[in-house]
Amino acid sequence: MTLPTRDDLIDFVYHEARVIDEGRFDEWLELWGSDSYYWMPLDYQQDNPKNMTSLMYEDAFLRKLRVERLNGLRTFSQKPKSRCSHVLNRPSIEAFDPKAGQFITRTAVHYVETRLDDQFLLAATVHHHFEMVEDELKIKLKRVDLLNCDAAFGNIQLFI
């Protein structure tokens, strides 16, 4: 079995952010492993995605739905489309355990999203949990903790 290097993990995180920023969402869907989740908790240090509300907790079906919707003709909140920009701090390796198949990075992110005359900035800490699927690195869990998770937001329409 091919193993990832530490640099592979770091490069992946930068690559993923770029794919989102460039609106290559179909490509983004391919970065995920089986039974994988995109999780954005609502509560500070939330430990369970199911027994309380989250902002997002999305499996492959829901991620695909989001991306297909962005491409749709009657997606009114995306006329005109939103754009986004990620600024990433260098990811740190939080776990690198080939035996257990555990690879985790932590990345501090500043995220800007814009549409029409509005633009907003969010700060987040992002944990990527990876797995190897047929010798390819894939996301198993992406956890996005917003610095101001308890604030009232307007629409957040793309992916942090």
Binding site: M40, L55, L65, S77
Partner: peptide, 17 residues
């Protein structure tokens, strides 16, 4: 909890519209 986040969150594709 799923209903709440899918329909009524600031990150909800239903809420957005």
């Amino acid at each position: 909890a799923m209903y709440n986040r899918l329909i009524n969150a600031p990150t909800s594709i239903v809420g957005h519209d």
